[in-house]
Amino acid sequence: MSIKRINTLCAAIFSAFFISSCTTTPTSNIAVDVLITSTNVLVGDGSEARALDIGICQEKICAVLPKGQHQFIAKKVIDAGDKLVSPGFIDPHTHSLAELENPETAANLNYLTQGVTTVVNGNDGGDIVDIASIKDKLNQQGIGTNTALLVGHGSVREHVMGRSKRQATADELAAMKALVNKAMLDGAIGLSTGLYYVPGSYASTEEVIELARIASNYDGIYDTHLRDESTFNIGFTQAVDEAIDIVKAANIHLHLAHIKALGVDVWGQSSAVINKVNRARKNGVSISADQYPWQASGTHLHSAVVPKWVMADSQQAFVNRLNDLSLRPKIIVQITENIRRRGGADALLFTVASDESIVGKTLKDVAQERRLNASELVIELVQGAPIRV
């Protein structure tokens, strides 16, 4: 299937529903490739399910009409009975690009079988700089779902200035703006940031505003993993304020990725943040958000608990700092505090690791097995292959 911009896809689907649904004059012999008929159809506008006939011409919905009131000539008829029929779901945060690029998993069946027909990639400021080459590869290979691509601020920043823990120079900012501009011209749907992650965490608010303005010039969106979903740096509510300030300055739509109050320090702040978002919307700021349907989050172990300053510059610099005995006490204290923020060592579950013996166990479990302090175990583990918790 082809790659589509998410806003174009939504417009096409809903235009088909709304325009066709308004046609009430009985017609006959409507030629379609596929006719789907059901007594339980949701059209996606928030209205109740209704009995409808849905005509598909090639890859497009070409008719949505009251069930049984019109005659169709169809090459294939699917009688869904009272089964629920709806537009395909859009998953706005998937990290599924590696699967789409792999011919063995490109069908993306784990999404399709759940009714997801469009996935968004390039979230959290990562993965994608060269939109054109990715589009070409996926189009030539073929993929099972549609995908929409965000250009990642963190990847753009690393492309221009590595993992330097400093503000960008004027020349570096210009280079980043040029990359974002090219990505938007090549079909990106917007700019994503992961201001919690390295190297995005090293960027100033002003840097992000400048890049978001480029995406705004193309009616793109600003999709963000907040700078802080807990008390790691500026605080949860302040991070939401920063995101709102960015989009107001850049005149762009804000999408808050996996919005949540992460960890014991901010539990109970959800209502305040929702109220903050609703106030901004009432004042004219365009905002949307998505949320996990479970009480957990997932990321790499180093991102979860290792201080951001330790990860600056390069992988070798990261390892050197971890093993610098003069820095070790400071690192231990900060890792210990970050573990506490996340609910303790028994709240960190290993989900992906090259050492399969630790998968399914908590940080507390493995620390006890190896007779190590949890923070010391983290320092040991993050120097090896990536581990997810």
Rank of each mutant, 00 (worst) to 15 (best):
R371E: 15
S270P: 04
L195D: 05
G44T: 08
C10V: 15
A174K: 11
D124L: 09
I30F: 01
K76R: 15
I331E: 00
K248I: 10
Q316I: 15
K182T: 14
D290T: 04
S270F: 13
Q316R: 13
A106R: 14
I244D: 00
L109T: 14
L138N: 00
L149D: 02
Q140E: 13
T94D: 10
G122L: 05
P307V: 03
Y292C: 04
S192N: 05
G268L: 05
E356Y: 12
E337L: 10
F350C: 06
L109M: 12
L65K: 01
Q167S: 12
D130C: 08
D91A: 02
I13T: 07
G235A: 06
S314W: 15
A272T: 15
H302N: 14
D245K: 14
F318I: 12
K165L: 06
T8V: 13
I221W: 09
H258R: 15
S192W: 02
Y292E: 06
T27A: 11
F89Y: 13
A148Y: 03
N123L: 12
A31L: 10
D365R: 03
S288M: 08
L100M: 12
D313F: 13
G125S: 10
T23L: 11
V366W: 00
D124V: 11
A80T: 12
Q383Y: 10
A212P: 01
A80G: 08
E207S: 05
N320T: 12
Q141T: 10
N123R: 04
D124C: 15
H225C: 05
N40S: 14
I252Q: 01
A49H: 10
I246C: 04
G194T: 06
A74E: 06
P329C: 05
K308E: 07
K165F: 08
R227E: 03
G284R: 04
V180N: 01
L179W: 01
I6D: 05
Q315P: 09
G126L: 04
V366A: 02
F318K: 12
Q140A: 09
G384C: 12
R340G: 07
A183R: 03
H93E: 09
N338A: 13
I259K: 04
K4E: 11
D265N: 14
W267D: 11
E207V: 03
S2G: 07
K76V: 10
G200A: 03
D355S: 14
E59Y: 09
S2F: 15
T193N: 07
D171H: 14
V277I: 15
A261N: 06
L254G: 03
N233P: 02
I131K: 05
F17M: 15
Q334T: 08
V285A: 07
Q71P: 02
E59H: 10
I78Y: 11
D91L: 02
S297N: 07
A261F: 04
A168I: 06
S201Y: 09
G144R: 08
M176P: 00
A51C: 14
G190S: 11
G44L: 06
G81M: 12
M161H: 10
P66I: 07
G284F: 03
A385Y: 15
E229F: 06
V156R: 00
I61H: 02
